[in-house]
Computed example of a mutant assay.
Amino acid sequence: MSAIIGLLSVLGIIVGSVLSVKAKIQHKQKKNPLLLTGISLLLFIGAFSFPSSSPTLEFDNDSVETNEQGIATIEGKTNEKSELNVEGKKVKTKNGTFRYKVTLTDDQEKKVTFTATLGGADEEKTITVTPSKAFVAFFNEEKQEQETIKKAETALALAEDTPTQKNYDEAATLVTSLTQEDLTRRLAIVKENVPIYEAVELAETKQTKEHLDSATALVDKATLNKDSLLRRLTVVQEKITEKEHTESLIAAARTAVEKAEQEPTDEHYNQAITKIKELPNGHTDLSNRANAVKQTLASKKEEAKRVAEAQKKAEEAQAAAEAQQAAAADQTPETPAPDTQGVQEMVLVTPTGSKYHNHKCGNGTYTPDTLESAKARGLTACSKCY
């Protein structure tokens, strides 16, 4: 637009000048030609004094390359009065020139779009920022280091949460390859807490008062997860108390079973069963031993019943023999003695004894037998019974 106005003003100056010369030659008034010339001159000056209403935008280079740190500087020109923006951010200009720095965050090239605005009109251009080889190498090295740091932080966080020797060793392998003071400091704290954590684990496994006391003394010095460790020791204490109570019940039940085994009576058997039922999870061995006592009692009762029956039969036979002998004694001498061969005197014998008895005498299994048979076996009369 300013070019058109400039051209018209030049023409006006020329025409005004010609008319002024002609009026002078013809001795006419030259007011109008001079006015035209003046106006045209003012328009000419104005056309080239005011900036263009159309924005312009130029770059010094079609593309730029970053330095080793991934930074590139874009330089260019625009209208002095234009407003320059890049991705929504205003760019400062000086006399129409500008410098804008771009920092790449990866090893890929980046398109940067500039927009120049003037009088409601826009001019937009894009320039490519290319990563240099030095930056690509630097970026890959940094990327690898960041990945190592990330792995080290992950391993260290696990070691801090669960400070076992294994977790510490894995974190130490990664942290010692870095120059990160914070990670090194945190690793040292983990190392101090490893024996504390192991002591708690040992107390949980062994569940003894000695291990509990040892772990408690170490936990007082813990700098990692102290509250959690104290809660775990509280659980250990509860289990130890429960274990001691159970052991006490088992000991009482064992004593009752042993007494029932030594003196197998119904009373002792019932006491043993009562103690076994008090055990939280029962006790297979003690239950089997109690059942054995029960069977022994049953056998003894059955044996006692058989012995009682045999003894009763023996006593009845003995009474019959004695009655027969008394009747024979009452007879006169001239009277022949009655035939008593048909009546056999009965005695009690044991399977392994060397004596025969006329009643149950001491412990053992007694069975009835004839006196003649007992003597034939070599048995002799019991001095207590006869």
Results as ranks from 00 to 15, higher is better:
Gly6Phe: 13
Ser9Tyr: 00
Ser9Cys: 01
Val10Met: 12
Leu11His: 01
Gly12Phe: 14
Leu19Lys: 10
Lys22Ile: 11
Lys22Cys: 03
Ala23Pro: 02
Lys24Glu: 04
Gln26Cys: 02
His27Arg: 14
Lys31Cys: 00
Leu34Cys: 05
Leu34Tyr: 09
Leu35Thr: 10
Leu36Lys: 04
Ile39Asn: 00
Ser40Gln: 05
Leu43Thr: 04
Gly46Cys: 15
Pro51Ile: 08
Pro55Val: 10
Pro55Ser: 11
Asp60Glu: 11
Asn61Asp: 09
Asn61Thr: 11
Asp62Ser: 13
Val64Arg: 04
Glu65Pro: 01
Glu65Ala: 12
Thr66Lys: 09
Gln69Phe: 09
Gly76Lys: 12
Gly76Met: 08
Thr78Arg: 11
Lys81Leu: 15
Ser82Tyr: 08
Glu83Ala: 12
Glu83Lys: 14
Glu87Cys: 01
Gly88Ala: 05
Lys89Val: 08
Lys90Asn: 08
Val91Thr: 10
Lys92Pro: 01
Lys94Cys: 00
Lys94Gly: 03
Asn95Gly: 06
Gly96Ile: 07
Tyr100Gln: 06
Tyr100Asn: 08
Tyr100Arg: 05
Asp106Gln: 05
Asp107Val: 03
Glu109Lys: 14
Glu109Arg: 10
Lys111Ala: 10
Thr117Tyr: 02
Thr117Gln: 14
Thr117Ser: 15
Leu118Pro: 03
Leu118Asn: 12
Gly119Trp: 14
Thr126Leu: 03
Thr130Cys: 02
Ser132Asp: 06
Ala134Cys: 01
Phe135Pro: 10
Gln144Asn: 15
Gln144Asp: 14
